[in-house]
Design a protein around this nucleic acid. Structure first.
Lengths: 380, 380
DNA sequence: CACGCTAGTTTGAACGATCAAATCTGGGTA
DNA sequence: TACCCAGATTTGATCGTTCAAACTAGCGTG
């Protein structure tokens, strides 16, 4: 439609300042090479004309677009992932601090989506990628690593040796912290409601639960359910139907935990009073009145910053940080009424408070409601 | 670090096919100009070499980056806006369908952020902008319009004459629909809990409520509260403390509505049974067990598609749609237990079901809890 | 047979920056 | 005076594409 106004170029700034193209370029990219007097004259001209270097021309010449690709996976079960949305915000801000922007694109999950990565790469549209939604054995990591494409992953691939740098949240530490919190409140019968075996993050969170149980000398009790409130509710039902039901449930996700809250409500049990519940992710809904779910909060903003830092280091923009190319951040526990109801903590098992279970006897119950993995490899 | 592999160029494809640069370019951009036999030869070479045109070079020459700028406003009150997150997803997908990508950036709200827009524009980093988080009298619209910068806004500026094209959701129709839903359930005492006067969307939703009340001949009752569950709870308290308390509350947002649910709980009133509640936005938490909030759902995906369509039409990429440059989409009502509890609809006011109020007498009650605007301009 | 026309193709210039090498300018030294 | 050197600045080439104009056949027409 309307022809856009054609902005000033290096050449026009140079003319205005009475110097050559390259001197203006130097003022911008290597000021120390320019004599102070000249520099001031050029800077005045730049301000005068309100000059902004053309990103495209610069990128074409230097082969660096100053854009970082991030893929929006298609929305899975209608529900967005609030953790990832916060992540994108964090990444955008962190990148902006160094003059980088985020380029959003879409691609199908798994190997089918690799073509979109190849396309952006071939077009020189991005300098590198930020990955999330990492799957076990995610094909993207190996594919990118083989091609020497700079990238950083939020989440591990859980395949023995990781390809490329990653930042992740220590899920095992999170669930362990949840167990400790419940133990200190007096709970001795603490269950875990997890995902089916095979998801990296889910198995990690389970492992943290197990090792915490072991270190406190209490018996593990594990049920498994698919992600979602309805499966979570059903899983809680199975746990509550055991002969010696738990006084507390640690959940692999908030969504699961909401299902557990539902199950408690149906049985007339009050969260925090009768059965304590802990979720994972600290989603916005966890803080709502009527829910008030204690939950493990991922330091998403820190993850975003770290991801950008590692990626820019690869691109040579930042000095390589003297930390390694992977980073495991500790989550924190946000305590709410689902474990500590208003009016102070309630001791579990009112008839026999702080009753001591004998761990050895109960140790096998955990397998009842799900697969029992033969050997569980613990996090290093 | 590692020098990236230097991909094929137009020139190398041309050499492989035995034609000139420009012919290859024509095959890609204007195939009808090329003889069929030549075209096939060139296409084979392109596949052979896995050639992808360099986006930067193309953009530099054509002055079109095929990127659309979208600004992530800094997170306000810690809570993300789930509606906007869905919007970004929708926009990303819609843009991808036409070979466009989204460039994310950050800027402070209001006039302070204009500099970031100017920067991206001067750098030729984007072809246009997608605006959201529109404020009343948003300075961005006029600023961009004056400079002939292509943009489309999700949301109006509510300043009499709108500058530039926009897509929005008909909030008034949404609240009117909520009132109709409640009226048909038998409610005759329906209150509205809104934001303080002065927010475009809030006033719009209130106007829809008012006109629906008028058309059904029931008296309006309005309270106002800031956004958030706690203010919502307090607002509900004020409404429930009136001499003739409402049997239903339409809320300007889900967050407000969660506060209302809280207030009901504190008084031992059951949502849907004793007092019906309707929210606005249909946030993920609305569907959770234990909440089950009836809510006005914005057709965010449609908004995103429309925004992209209007923007690409401005850029000359799409034929200008034969619709005007603004579009008002109707929201839909998602009915849940907060108005229709399990076990079928409950008539309100059990002692005197379907009691008829006299609208004229009560009309002034609404002003009690908030500003009473002298003249309310209705949507055209 | 010269001419014009059209379809198909090629050539040179340009987009706006950076890189690499060349040039200019003084000042110190033999 | 001639020479060198370092600092400051300029020049020419280049990144990979598209635009605009020029060229080349091939063919029908007067």
């Amino acid at each position: 439609m309307s022809r856009r106004y054609n902005g000033p170029t290096l050449e026009s700034v140079a003319a205005a300042a009475g110097v050559s193209r390259q001197t203006v370029s130097n003022v911008l990219n290597a000021p120390e090479r320019v004599a102070p007097a000249t520099r001031q004259r050029v800077e005045a001209a730049i301000r005068e004309l309100n000059y902004r270097p053309n990103r495209l021309a610069r990128s074409l010449r230097t082969r660096a677009s100053r854009l970082l690709g991030y893929c929006y996976q298609p929305v899975t079960d209608g529900a967005l992932n609030p953790v990832l949305d916060r992540f994108v915000h964090a990444v955008t801000e962190a990148a902006a601090a160094h003059g980088f922007h985020i380029l959003l694109f879409t691609a199908p999950a798994g190997a089918a989506g690799l073509d979109r990565y190849a396309e952006l790469l071939g077009q020189q549209a991005v300098d590198g990628f930020i990955l999330s939604d990492t799957e076990v054995g995610d094909p993207r990591h190996a594919w990118l690593a083989e091609r020497n494409v700079p990238f950083v992953s939020f989440g591990r691939t859980w395949t023995g040796e990781e390809r490329g740098p990653w930042v992740d949240v220590d899920g095992a530490a999170g669930t362990a912290q949840a167990v400790r919190h419940l133990y200190e409140l007096g709970h001795r019968r603490i269950a875990f409601l997890g995902w089916p075996e095979g998801s990296g993050a889910g198995d990690d969170r389970l492992a943290g639960y197990r090792s915490a149980c072991e270190s406190f000398g209490i018996p593990p009790l594990v049920a498994r359910a698919e992600q979602g409130t309805e499966p979570g509710r059903a899983g809680a039902d199975r746990l509550l139907a055991t002969p010696d039901p738990p006084t507390a449930v640690v959940c692999v996700s908030d969504l699961c935990a909401y299902g557990v809250l539902r199950a408690l409500g149906e049985r007339g049990l009050r969260p925090g009073h009768d059965v304590a519940v802990v979720g994972f992710d600290d989603t916005p809904a966890a803080a709502l009145p009527g829910i008030e779910l204690t939950s493990v909060a991922q330091p998403v903003e820190q993850v975003g910053q770290a991801v950008v830092r590692l990626l820019l280091a690869q691109l040579g923009v930042l000095d390589p940080p003297d930390l390694s190319d992977h980073l495991l951040l500790r989550p924190t526990l946000t305590v709410r009424a689902s474990t500590v109801p208003a009016g102070g903590p309630q001791p579990p098992d009112p008839p026999e408070p702080r009753r001591r279970h004998h761990a050895k006897d109960d140790d096998l119950v955990g397998g009842a409601a799900g697969h029992r993995p033969g050997r569980r490899r613990l996090r290093r």
